[in-house]
Design a protein around this nucleic acid. Sequence first.
DNA 1: TATGAATGAGCCTTCATTCAT
DNA 2: CATGAATGAAGGCTCATTCAT
Lengths: 218, 218, 218, 218
Amino acid sequence: MASSAVDSGRPAESGHPRRPRSRAKYEQRRREVVNASARLFAERGYHNTSIDDLVEATGLQRGGLYHYIDGKQHLLLLTHEELIAPLLARAEAIAAADLPAEAKLRELLRAWVAHVASHRDHMVVFNEERRLIESDPAWHDVRDARERFQSLLEGVLREGDRTGRLVMEDIGVVQMSILGIVNHMPQWLDPEGRLAPAQVADRCLDLLLRGLLPRRRG
Amino acid sequence: MASSAVDSGRPAESGHPRRPRSRAKYEQRRREVVNASARLFAERGYHNTSIDDLVEATGLQRGGLYHYIDGKQHLLLLTHEELIAPLLARAEAIAAADLPAEAKLRELLRAWVAHVASHRDHMVVFNEERRLIESDPAWHDVRDARERFQSLLEGVLREGDRTGRLVMEDIGVVQMSILGIVNHMPQWLDPEGRLAPAQVADRCLDLLLRGLLPRRRG
Amino acid sequence: MASSAVDSGRPAESGHPRRPRSRAKYEQRRREVVNASARLFAERGYHNTSIDDLVEATGLQRGGLYHYIDGKQHLLLLTHEELIAPLLARAEAIAAADLPAEAKLRELLRAWVAHVASHRDHMVVFNEERRLIESDPAWHDVRDARERFQSLLEGVLREGDRTGRLVMEDIGVVQMSILGIVNHMPQWLDPEGRLAPAQVADRCLDLLLRGLLPRRRG
Amino acid sequence: MASSAVDSGRPAESGHPRRPRSRAKYEQRRREVVNASARLFAERGYHNTSIDDLVEATGLQRGGLYHYIDGKQHLLLLTHEELIAPLLARAEAIAAADLPAEAKLRELLRAWVAHVASHRDHMVVFNEERRLIESDPAWHDVRDARERFQSLLEGVLREGDRTGRLVMEDIGVVQMSILGIVNHMPQWLDPEGRLAPAQVADRCLDLLLRGLLPRRRG
DNA sequence: TATGAATGAGCCTTCATTCAT
DNA sequence: CATGAATGAAGGCTCATTCAT
C-alpha cells in the first residue's frame, strides 16, 4: 500500500465491490465517513463506537453507510491509510535529502509533529488499535508503511552515528524513545495551546540533541 | 486509594461484598485471577477478551469467577491498582530522598523501567484502557495515583530547573517526553533481550541527560 | 402521558430511538409484540417469560424484537399504556357527564368491566407487576394515569355522598372495595362464560347499590 | 395439608430430609426464616429477592439456610401454609356455628380481615405468586385449603340465599366480589391507620349488606 | 443508491443450589 | 450443624452486518 497509496491516493483493492456512478461524490462522501469515524474512534475508542454512532455522525442510514465501507474494521484501515501515506512520503523526501543527519532528524521531527497535530484523531486511533495492525493480513500494507517509516528514522540515526554527528550508545533505544515521545503527543499536545506544534517539535529537539545536563558552551 | 494502597497495599473496600472467612486464600486466588486477566488483556486487548477466555485461563467456572470480581471492568481496576500502588510508593521515597535532581531522575527512571519490565502486562492494559480511567468515578483513586506520580516527576524536573542541575526550555515538554518514552517501552522492551531493563534505563538516561550531539568533554 | 395518551392514544416519546420511515407498519408490528407479550406475561408471569419465549411467540428473532422495544421492562410499560389510556379517557367522559352519581357509577363500572374483559391479559399483568409502577421513574405517567382514574372514582363517590344519592360510612373503604372487586375479575370473569361482562357489571352494581339484605320494597 | 396443618401445625412430609438434632430450636429457626422471607417477598417480590438477600436478613450463611429449607420455592410453600392453616380452621368453626347466614358472613369477614391485617406479608405473597399454586403438584395441599376456604364462603352465601336472609341475583359474582375486596386489602389497609382492621371489616359489611342506595328505614 | 427491518452469534452477568471441609 | 467456594444453566441485551424493497 505504502507506495500505491502515496502515488495514486486510492488503492483499488480496498474499494467497494459495486462501482459507484459518480466517482467524485462517492470519494468525498467516503472521506467524510472516514473522518467522522476517526473523530469518534479517537473520542470514545473503536470498541465503544457503534455503527449507529457513525450513522448518527454521518447523517447516513445504516444501509447507506455500507456503500462506502466494507465493515467497521475497514474504516480503521482507511483511517490508517489516510494517516500514514502523506507522512511517509514526506519522510522519504527528508531522508533522501542532502542534509547532515541532525538536520534530517530535525526536519523529520518537525514534519512528524505537525502531522500528529493535524491528524490527532487518526493518530490516537492508530496508537490504540495497534493490535489489529499486527495480525490481520488485510493490514499488510499499513504494517509495511509503518515499518518503512521506522526504518527511515533508524536510517537517519544510523547515518548520524556513522558520520559522528550524532552520538548514542544504543541506536535502538534512541529510536524507540523518539517513537515513544511522538506517539504520546496526541494525549497532551494542543494545537491551540501555549506551544504551537512547531515549537513543541523544537523543544523536543533541544531535549534530544542537547540533553538536560548543562553544557560548558551552548 | 492512593495513600491506603501505598500504606497497606490492599484496599479493603474493593473486596467482594460478602466477606470470606479465610482472607488469605481468597486474596491469593483473586490475585491469580487478576494476573491471568492482565496477561490476556495485554495479549489480545480488553475488548477481545471474553469472560469465557478468563474462565479458561483461570480454571474457574463462569460463576466462580464472580466470587473474586465484581465484573469485567472491576478486573481492569484491580489490574491498575496492582500496577500503580507499589510504583507510586517507590517514587514517593525517591522524591523525598536527599539527592540532587539528576540523581533523583536517574533513580526514578530505573525504578520505573524495572517496574514496567516486571509488570509489562499490567502496563499495556494501563496504556490501552486509559479512557476508562478518565471518566468513571470508580476510577477516582487510580486517577489520583496517576496524577500523583506525574506530579512527582514534575517536581523532580522543577527542582532540577530551580537548582540549575537540569537545563530545559520547557518543563512540560520534557515531562511528557519522559512519560512517552517509558509508556512506550512495553511495546519493545524485552526482559530477556539484548539489553536488560536496567541497561535500557541507563541508555535512556544517557539520551535524556546528555543528548545526541557530541560534547567537547564527556 | 396521561393527557397525551388520552388525546392521541400514541405517546410519541416512547418509540424506538431511531425513527422508522414508515410509521404505520412499525406501530402495527409493535402492537403485535405488545399483545403477544401481554398474553405470555398473563399466562406464565413476567418473570417466567423469557425473551426467547417472546421470540417464539412473535416470530421475530432476538435482535429483531429489540427494534420495537427498549428492553423487557419496556414491554411492561407499553402493556400498561395500552391498558390504561383508553379506559381513562372513557372514565373522564363519564365523570364529566350530566348524570346523577349512581348513574355515573353504573356507567363507570360497565365501561370498566368491559375493558377488563377485553384486556384481560393486560389487566393481569397490571395487577401482578404493581411493584414496578410504584418505584421506577419511567413509570411516572402510568402511575399518574392510575391515580387519575382512582380519583375519578373517588369523585363520583364523593359527589354521591354530597348529594345524598349514595350512602356510605366511609368513602375510602367503598372506593377500595370497588377497586378490589374489579381488579380481581380477570381471575374469574370469562367473556365466553355463563354471564357476559355486561351482566357481571350489573350484578356487581346490584350488590354495591342494594346490598345483600332484603329490602321492604324492591 | 389443610387438616394436618391445622392439627399438628407441621406436616411431616415437607421437612428436611436430614433429621434435626433438637427439634425445638430447629423449628424456631425455621419459622424465623419463613417470616423473614415473607417480609422480603412482600416488600420486593419473590423474584426480586435473592437467596443472598435472605442470607443477609436471617444472619445465616448460604449453606446454613439450606438446612432449614428445601429451596426457594419451598419457602413460598411454608409461607402459604402459615397463612392459610389458622384462617381455615377459624372459618370452619364459623361455618359450623349455629348462626344465621348474615351473622356467619359477618364473623367470617371479621376473622378474615383480622388475619389479613396480621399476616399482611404472607397475604401479599399469596396473592402475587398465585400461579405456582395452580400448577405445581407440591402445592396440592395449599390448593386444597384455598378451595376449602372458598367453598366455606360459598356455603354461607348459599345458605343465606336458601333461607332468604341474604338476597342476591348471582352467588358466584357475590363470592368473587368478596374475595376481591379482601384480597385487595393488603394494598391499602394499614393496621396503624385511621380505621382499625375490625372497623374496616364492619364498613365492608355495611357495604355488602346494605349497599349504597338510601333505604326507607335504616 | 438508499432504507431500515431483521438477523443471530456472542457477550456479561445473575443466581439457586451443591458439597468438600 | 455450618461454611463459602464453586457450579453451570439461563437470562437479558448488543451490535456488526445483510437484504428485500
